[in-house]
Each structure stands twice: as C-alpha cells, then as structure tokens.
Design a binder for these strands. Structure first.
Length: 224
DNA sequence: TCATTAAATTGTT
DNA sequence: AACAATTTAATGA
C-alpha cells in the first residue's frame, strides 16, 4: 500500500461510492509525507481532518488528566483515526507522532461530514470504527495501570492486530525494536527483554526488523 | 550471480 | 548510553 488511491480501493466503505464521489474524496484529501519523529497532528489544535495512514506507522499518545503520558496506540498502513474528534468538534486530545517516515492522508472535516450524509456504508464503517476504538481504550485502562512492561508490550502488540483498526497489518509485522520501545513507552533494552520473554512463551517469533505473532489470543491474555 | 561495502538492527554490558 | 555481532541492502565486477 503506497498511494492514497490504492488505500481507497482497498477500503470497504469506498467500494460502494459512485465514481464521481470517489473522485471528490480523492481530490479533496491532502496527502503528505511525515518524517520519522515528527508530529502528524498536535494536541490542542482544532480538528479539521480525519486522518489515515497510507503507508508507515504512527502512535497516538494518550495523555491522562494530570498530563502524564500513559498509554499508546499504534496505527499502521491502512488505518484511520480521529473520527471521534471530528464529530465532537473539540480540540484534539492526542499527539500523533510518526514512528517512521509515513505517508499520511488528511481527509477534510467537510468531506468527512459529506460522506456521512451520502453514504450508508460509510456510516456503518465509522460506527464500527468508533466501537472498536472504544473497546481498545477500555482494554488499555484494564491493562496499563496494573501490569508490568512485558504485559504492556504484549497488549500493545495485540492491539496492533485489530483487523478493523489496522486493516493492512500482516501476521508478521515489520517493526523494529526501537519503534516498539517508543510505542510501548519503554527503553529499547527493556523492549528487547520483553520481546524475548514473549518469544520464550511461544507467543511471537522475533525476526530481523520485525516480529511474527504466533498466538494472538495468548498475547491478549498475557499477564506476565 | 557473487563478493565487498555500508547501513540498520539486535543482543549485551 | 555505548559496544560488538549480526542481518539486510546496495554496489560493482
């Protein structure tokens, strides 16, 4: 998945759009490349777009009420986020950082609302998306506070494999341990140790520059 | 196709 | 944070 056009072709909600409508979405969406480590969008800015990851990997850093970064969610190629903020008309509550050079699509708020008006499949897609994201955050609240680094990493990895939120992701996920550490909020050596423990438990296989998930259910339940 | 080199990633201290 | 070992990617014969 390299271009926005290819991303649209693969999207279930786009399949039923009239060719003219699809062309409108394509022409109104801004696509740009974000360098590794740069902000895709800032916390506190007014939300003007629904954001899609065409190619690459970004993290949403969830900041709790007291301002401490607590939990992280990875979004990879094919995923969309920020629909809640577009609908609620409030300042964005998360920083989004590109973990590697990434191609990002900014679908303007007006186009987003127009899609909601004209397309029932798009409405269903958004409802499903919101529901899955909600479930993800609930799961995070359960895990984040109580558990240690290994379990946090396991949960973080399992969340990357939600097929609704990250459609493009394959069983073998190309993500370096450096990127993994940033995603889980750990140091690289800590992430390395955690990954090795998960491999010993038979849940993943460590590849060069990536990991392969062997037991997704086991990852979700992993307690350390 | 194979060998050499550079760059990236990993495991360890 | 720094180091050495390993893997991949790139280059050229």
């Amino acid at each position: 998945m390299t271009t926005f056009a290819a991303m649209l072709r693969a999207a279930p909600w786009a399949a039923t759009l009239a060719p003219g409508d699809l062309a409108r979405v394509e022409s109104e969406t801004l696509v740009r490349t974000c360098a590794s480590g740069t902000l895709v969008c800032r916390r506190g800015e007014t939300v003007e777009a629904w954001i899609g990851v065409v190619d690459g990997l970004v993290k949403m850093t969830n900041v709790s009420a007291d301002g401490k970064p607590t939990s992280f969610v990875g979004v990879s190629s094919g995923g969309w986020f920020g629909e809640g903020s577009v609908l609620k008309d409030e300042p964005r509550r998360y920083d989004i950082v590109a973990l590697r050079e990434s191609v990002i699509a900014y679908l303007p708020k007006a186009t987003f609302l127009w899609l909601l008006d004209i397309s029932m499949p798009f409405n269903r897609f958004i409802i499903t998306q919101l529901n899955e994201r909600l479930g993800q955050f609930i799961g995070m609240v359960e895990h984040d506070r109580l558990l240690g680094p290994e379990a946090r990493l396991a949960h973080c990895l399992a969340a990357m494999f939600n097929p609704v939120l990250n459609p493009g992701v394959q069983p073998s996920l190309p993500i370096s341990q450096e990127e993994f550490a940033q995603l889980a909020g750990l140091s690289r050596q800590r992430a390395n140790q955690a990954l090795q423990r998960l491999e010993q438990a038979g849940l993943v296989r460590i590849d060069y520059g990536g990991v392969t998930v062997r037991d997704l259910a086991g990852l979700r339940q992993f307690q350390g």
